[in-house]
Structures are given as C-alpha cells and as structure tokens.
Amino acid sequence: MHMSQTTAVRPVAARRRPGRGLYVGLIIIGILTLLRAFAPAPPADSLADTARDFVTLSISVVIESLPFVFLGIVLSIGVQIWLPEGFLLRRLPKNVVARRVVLSLLGMLLPVCECGNVPLARGLIAKGLTVGESMTFLFAAPILNPVTIITTQQAFGWDGGILAWRIAGGFLIANLIGYIYSRHPKPESLLTPRFREACALGDGHNAADGKARRSAALFTKETSAMLPALFIGAGLAGLIQTAVSRDVLVTLGSNPVWSVLALMGLAFVVSICSNVDAFFILSFGATFLPGAIVAFLVFGPMIDIKMLALLRTTFTAKTLVQLTLIVALCSAVLGLAINYAV
C-alpha cells in the first residue's frame, strides 16, 4: 500500500519542477568541462610508463567504443519506443530456422559494431525476441554486416578464401548457438535477474508518459547498465595488454595448431572492433597461417574481454562461460580444418 502510494505521488511531484533537473544537469556538465579544461598538468614522469600506457590503452577502448554503444542505445530506443509495436519482430518468418537465418542477416541493415549490438539485442529481447534468437543476432551481426565484409575484402581480397570462411563461419556458429539455446527448457534463466526484471517492467513508464520522457528514461537505464560494463571491460583490456607480452603469441605463428590458439588468444585480449580487425590482423598475415587468421576473425567479434563485460549485463556468468566455450571450440575447429585441409 505504502509502495503504490509512493509510486503514484513521486513522479507527479517531480514533474512540477521540470527545470530543476535541467539546471543540475547543466551545472554537472559545466563543472566537468571546467575540470577537463583546467586540470593541472601533473609533473612529468609522475606515472611510470607502464601505468601511463595502461591509462592510455583503457581510455582508447572507451573513446573508440563509446560512440558505438551510444548508437546501439539510440537504435534500441528507436525499436522499443518509436517504431510501432512489433514493427520489426512481426516481419520475421514464423519458421524458427528461417527466423534465425533472417536475424543473422539483420546486421546488414543495422551495421552497428559488436558493442552497439548488445543494447540493441537487449531492446529486441524486451520486445519479445527469444534468448536463443538474440544470441544468433548478437554473434552474427558483427561479422555479417557490410562494413566488416568490405574491410575484410579490402584487407585480404579473395585470397585463400579468408573472407568466405569468415562469413560462413560466423553464420554457422551464430545459427548453431541459436539452435542450441532454443532447446533450453528455461531460457529466461540464462538472463541476469536484473535484466529479467527490467524486461518484465517494460521501459518503466506507462504509455501516458510522452515518448521523449520514455526515451530519456530508457537512455539512463541502458547507459547505467552498459557504461559501467564498458569502463570495467576497458580497464581489464588495458591491464592485460600491459601485462601480457604480444611476442609470446606472435612467436607461435607458424605451427598449425598453436597459431590458431595464439590468434584466438590475441583476439580475446585485443578486444578490437570487428569493422577493422581485418586490417589489424593483416599485419600478421606473413606470420600466421590462414586458418589462424580465420579463427581470429570469427572468434574475436563474438567473444573478447570487452564483449564479455558488456554481455554480462544481460546473461548470467554460467551462460557466458558456455557461450565462450562453444564459440572457441567452433572457431578452433574451423581454423584447424583450414590449416590442415586447404
């Protein structure tokens, strides 16, 4: 009784003073801007090189990923609030296999990077997509999207079938995972309790609230879920990069088995965006066997440190361990098959 009274009264009271929040917000933005503009430069060498590089690498991950996360949240707001109810999901085929196939090609229309796909997938689950289907979309979209395909083609051309293997591998693994998790007896148990409750509550506002207010509420909710994960993931990626020497991975390059595992390890650590990972790995083209490069290009967009931190906002730790093992196993098999058979 007490709760329902509070619920009914609080927002109305808050709405009577719409300007106050705006002033508070602008003051916070102003203070942080002044802080950046006038932060005193610390004396040179106040940070050891390694600590400085840790900060630089972590910031680099944040600055590079943040716009994609914002784009994903904006698209998620579009899907959940601005598009007519069921606009996207209603158009999907009824047959489950065909449905997953279409979902794995959704990245062709919404070419967001993998970090942006997480908030978008959360929005789609909230709108009724099953957990298995959301995984198919999450894992296929970073690879089966026009930007990734064009950059991979630019980097490798048609040589060695690297582009074809990448597309086929991404498509098959994403659909396999969708199939496996579609058979789960309690798919909702794969989601974190917090996200489950968020889905049950909808966007937390009734339809009487304007779309602008609901969009703003969803933005704060999604940034509160995604950004802590992104910042922690960026910190971990920076930390591991300053702690682990890349030489160790690169020296394993010419062995058909180790090269595959080494490049998958590199993909996991580097956490690089799928749109440009082909250019990055091109630099190792002479060192590594083609199967290792394909394993890197298939495994990296699906699973890496940053991606796991972001996915943890939505899926339980146990689910993520299973997903990591399945994707790693499939990518390794694909890479080894190419190394030995082609």
Binding site: A13, P18, I29, A212, R213, A216, T220
Partner: peptide, 9 residues
C-alpha cells in the same frame, strides 16, 4: 543526457 536531466524525476 540533457533531455534526461530535464525530464526525469
């Protein structure tokens, strides 16, 4: 962000 500060309780 500014819209959120302005509109949300």
């Amino acid at each position: 962000v500014v819209v959120a500060f302005a509109l949300l309780p």
